[in-house]
C-alpha cells in the first residue's frame, strides 16, 4: 500500500505545487487523478512514487518512508510512467530498452529472453524490436516505456497521462491490459485528462485543483 499523509510540496523556486494531500493506493485498486494543467498532478505522482520527497508530511510505500528509500529500491516496487515518455528511454534499441531492468539485475539470459519476448508481444512491439527508441511515434514510445517498466513486475503503477498519443485501438488495448494487471493485485494511480478513460477504470476518482486534492 502507498499512503500519503498530509503531504505538501514546494519546488525550490517557491512554487507550492501540492498542499495537504492525503491519499492511498491499495493493492488491486485503481485510483484516477483528474485536474487542469498545472494543478499539481505530476508533482503528486512523483511524490507518491518517491521520486520527490515531501516538503512536509510523509509518504510510505508498504510502511517505509520514501525519504529512507533509494530510487533503485523504489523501482523494484513502483513502476512510474513519465508524462513525457521520451525522457525515460535511454538505450539504442527497443529490445534493449525492454530488457534493461533485467540485464541490470544479472538474471539468466534465457529467462530474460522469455520475459522480453512476452513484453514485446503484449505491447505490440515485436516488429519494432530493432528500432531506435527516439525514432518511434509518441504512442509507440508510450508503449515502449510501459513495457520497460512493467517487465520488473512492480506492485504499484503510477502512470502520468498514459493515454496521450494513443489511438482508439491502442487505448482500448491499454484498457484491457490495465484491468488485467489490476486483477493480479497491482495498485494503480492513473493521472489523466481523459475523463472518460479515467472514470471507466477507476474505483476511486479524485480531482486536483491548484495543489489541493479532493474526491470528485
Amino acid at each position: 500500500m502507498i499512503v500519503a499523509f498530509d503531504v505538501d510540496y514546494r519546488y525550490p523556486d517557491g512554487t507550492d505545487a501540492v498542499s495537504g494531500a492525503s491519499v492511498r493506493i491499495s493493492p488491486g485498486e485503481i485510483l484516477a487523478i483528474l485536474g487542469h494543467n498545472g494543478s499539481g498532478k505530476t508533482t503528486l505522482g512523483k511524490l507518491l512514487s518517491g521520486i520527490l520527497k515531501p516538503t512536509s508530511g510523509r509518504v510510505e510505500i508498504d510502511g517505509t518512508d520514501t525519504r529512507r528509500m533509494s530510487l533503485g529500491r523504489i523501482g523494484e516496487r513502483v513502476g512510474y510512467l513519465f508524462q513525457d515518455p521520451g525522457r525515460q528511454l535511454f538505450t539504442s534499441s527497443v529490445e534493449e530498452e525492454v530488457r534493461f531492468a533485467l540485464d541490470i539485475q544479472g538474471i539468466a539470459e534465457d529467462r530474460i529472453r522469455h520475459r522480453t519476448e512476452h513484453m514485446l508481444d503484449t505491447f505490440n512491439l515485436l516488429d519494432l524490436r530493432k528500432s531506435f527508441p527516439f525514432d518511434l511515434s509518441r504512442g509507440e514510445k508510450q508503449r515502449l516505456a510501459l513495457a520497460a517498466v512493467m517487465i520488473n513486475e512492480p506492485d504499484f503503477l503510477i502512470l502520468d497521462e498514459p493515454t496521450t498519443g494513443l489511438d482508439v485501438r491502442r487505448k482500448s488495448e491499454l484498457s484491457r491490459l490495465l484491468i488485467r494487471t489490476g486483477d493480479t493485485g497491482v495498485g494503480m494511480m492513473i493521472i489523466s485528462h481523459d475523463e472518460e478513460f479515467a472514470r471507466g477504470h477507476a474505483h476511486t476518482v479524485m480531482e486536483m485543483d491548484r495543489g489541493v486534492l479532493r474526491r470528485a
Binding site: S49, S70, G72, G75, F82, Q88, F90, A101
Partner: peptide
Amino acid sequence: EEAEDTLVALQLRGVRLE
C-alpha cells in the same frame, strides 16, 4: 530538467549509482 528525469528513470529501473 530533462537530464534529471532520465537519471531518475535509470535509477528506478534498478541502476544503483551509489
